[in-house]
Design a protein around this nucleic acid. Structure first.
Length: 634
RNA sequence: GCCGGUGUAGCUCAGUUGGCUAGAGCAGCUGAUUUGUAAUCAGCAGGCCACGGGUUCAAAUCCUGUCACCGGCUCCA
């Protein structure tokens, strides 16, 4: 029979030949790398029997699709091991995910990370035994019977559409409801590792029972696995919670409260530098600063709708002179009140009001995480009041602005999402449609690739969310740009148009960095605590070699301070080696060593955190270089 | 909030099957050392063993409640 290949060439095979035989016919190296195949676009096992005229493609182990097959098969091996070791375990689902795979189980008794070793050992036996994956096509009744003791599988089965084929795969005595494809045999899961166990609701819904999820990963080579494990370790080394403690930037105090960070001098200094940059950039980009109080009467939140739509994130009201007040979870109503304080003309629009506004939101205890998820945080917030004809241009300029801001912090790789109308929402369909298409058009105008995130918008409007990719490739949600027709209506926000009648402006809510807490947490990890010069709380430290150099060291520090640099002097009675070590641990960008030679010549011996010993340099020259580098924010 | 885990000095960690005044390194303090590119030496001080109940002759250790933290689920700036 004749089979066509992706390059449209034709090969001749015996009738009844399998995908694997086709791969072997094409080449032995391909056959070795093959993990699955596609036939007429559909993924199939290598054992799949081809038919006359089929178009075949071979999925190899190093392609993303190939890795997915390997990981998916690994999850079956995991499930097989688990059912052998823990009889009576019920099976959830076990898919491949971005960096590995997981399988959800309902164990008869709790299983913890200590059990992973035992499970891994069993998995290795199964892999060593090279057990073939057997595919079964079942009729619905047989399937129902086969998974009689597996309520979760029954549920999956019941949800399959009637015209869908029911398939299952088995290795040894273990059979799982599964669409496939899988490897030929378990021996082809080469290197894997179980990583963690965690709770996970069945189908991600908290109304459902909690299952135990085992996470693992699999690769085609030990080297690739080791590299992945090394990446995980690198992420651990960059953990902002650990670095924040080490570098004395912030802490979260149990007696103050969970999710309420306290900024130490150095952390507060970094924050101040970012805030200054932020304010200057906003003033330069046509924004004005506003400020509002931290609590407001409950009436305000009833008018805004937060009382109804945002209740679960707001803290309980407090009684002030018999009136209810609420700590603000958002800044928008305050800004609207400023807008409404007098009549506005169409000539004034667009109005761009920005504030580093601190808000307090209830987060479930289990969601808190260092600076990345807290209960009190400062948004780099702004609200734009625009005429309908200005909407799209304003969105475009916000996008351009955020790209500039993020680039300054060393981020130039993004994931962009456009979120559309959720179920629980307010407003007319026309408004939603208008806003969504404005966002879409703006993204296209700027040329940003984006993904659609259906139903993930805010209750009052659609939004653009941006995730930044950090130095080791992780994505962080920071930026959000939201269009809002709702609040202007609720607060009866108007402007007087050219026609001398009242019109309704549209609001844009936007946070570029998201919140200072999250952004700085992310920055700490991005830079692994070694901040670039313009952000470093201590930019240079002068290290006198002996006490007799302290005077000169003080002069050097003074000169640099005059140049506007942040400089420390380490005049402790310690060895230079010790002073250098401590400065290295503190990740200070420049260590300036001064001894007799330097004092005589009027220069300093420069050691940079990034490059090590750089030899000596005149103080003024160094000051000029450093100030230039600060200005360039490089 | 839910599932699993953890909580010992400022930090990192020891602490056998419950059994003497709970240990170490680093940091801190005091003294000596005056030092040339990642830790000079010595001494001292520092602990309601997260918090509250309980079991026991005896609890850091066992049970239980609370709180916090960690890995996830959920949620999101």
């Amino acid at each position: 029979m004749k089979i066509s290949l992706p390059d449209n060439s034709i090969i001749e095979l015996d009738d009844g030949a399998t995908a694997m035989e086709a791969a072997a016919k094409i080449g032995s190296r391909l056959a070795k790398a093959a993990v699955a195949a596609t036939v007429n676009g559909q993924p199939v096992d290598l054992s799949h029997q081809l038919a006359e005229g089929d178009a075949i493609g071979i999925i190899t182990d190093n392609s993303p699709e190939g890795l997915e097959v390997i990981r998916h098969s690994a999850s079956h091996v995991l499930a097989s091991a688990v059912t052998q070791l823990y009889p009576g375990t019920q099976l959830g689902i076990g898919p491949a995910i971005a960096d590995g795979f997981y399988y959800d189980f309902k164990f008869p008794s709790p299983v913890s990370e200590n059990d992973l070793e035992k499970i891994e050992a069993r998995m290795k036996e199964i892999i060593k035994a090279k057990v073939p994956f057997l595919r079964h096509e079942l009729c619905r009744e047989d399937a129902a019977e086969m998974f009689g003791a597996q309520p979760f599988k029954q549920e999956l089965l019941a949800d399959l559409s009637l015209d869908e084929k029911v398939t299952a795969y088995s290795i040894e005595g273990f059979t799982d409801l599964c669409r496939g494809p899988h490897l030929l045999d378990t021996g082809r899961v080469k290197t894997f590792k179980l990583l963690s166990v965690a709770g996970a609701y069945w189908r991600g819904d908290e109304k459902n029972p909690m299952l135990t999820r085992i996470y693992g990963t699999a690769f085609t080579s030990k080297k690739a696995l080791d590299e992945h494990l090394e990446r995980l370790k690198e992420a651990e080394r960059r953990d902002h919670r650990v670095l924040g403690k080490q570098l004395d930037l912030f802490h979260i105090d149990e007696e103050v409260g969970a999710g309420l960070p306290l900024w130490h001098p150095r952390g507060a200094l970094i924050r101040k530098i970012i805030e200054d940059f932020w304010r200057d950039a906003h003033l330069a980009n046509g924004y004005e600063m506003v400020m509002i109080p931290h609590i407001a009467s409950a009436d305000l939140w009833k008018t805004s709708g937060h009382w109804d739509f945002y209740r679960e994130s707001m803290y309980s009201p407090m009684d002030i002179d018999g009136q209810e007040y609420i700590v603000k979870p958002m800044n928008c109503p305050g800004h609207i009140k400023i807008y409404n304080s007098r009549t506005r003309s169409y000539r004034e629009l667009p109005i761009r009001w920005a504030e580093l506004g601190t808000v307090y939101r209830y987060e479930r205890s289990g969601a808190l995480h260092g600076l990345l998820r807290v209960r009190g945080f400062t948004q780099d917030d702004a609200h734009l009041f625009v005429r309908p004809d200005q909407l799209q241009d304003e969105i475009i300029s916000v996008i351009r602005f955020v790209l500039y801001m993020l680039k300054t912090f060393g981020f130039d790789d993004y994931e962009v999402y456009l979120s559309t109308r959720p179920e629980k929402s307010v407003g007319s369909d026309e408004h939603w449609e208008q806003a969504t298409s404005a966002l879409k058009a703006a993204l296209e105008e700027v040329g940003l690739a984006y993904e659609l995130d259906p139903g993930e918008g805010v209750f009052y409007g659609p939004k653009i969310d941006m995730k930044i990719r950090d130095a080791i490739g992780r994505a962080w949600q920071c930026t959000t740009i939201q269009v809002d027709f709702n609040l202007p209506e609720r607060f009866d926000v108007t402007y007087v148009g050219e026609d001398n009648s009242e019109h309704r402006p549209i609001m844009i809510h936007r946070a570029l960095l998201g919140s200072l807490e999250r952004f700085i947490g992310c920055l700490i990890e991005h830079y692994a605590g070694a901040f670039p010069l313009w952000l470093a709380p201590v930019q240079a430290i002068v290290l006198p070699i002996a006490d007799r150099h302290n005077d000169y060291a003080g002069q050097v520090a003074g000169r640099l301070k005059e140049a506007g640099l942040r400089v420390d002097l380490d005049d402790r009675k310690e060895s230079v080696g010790r002073k250098i070590r401590d400065a290295e641990m503190g990740k200070v960008p420049f260590m300036l060593i001064v001894g007799d030679k330097e004092a005589d010549a009027g220069n300093v011996s420069v050691r940079s955190y990034a490059e090590g010993d750089r030899g000596s340099e005149a103080v003024d020259e160094l000051a000029a270089k450093m100030t230039r580098q600060v200005e360039e924010k490089s």
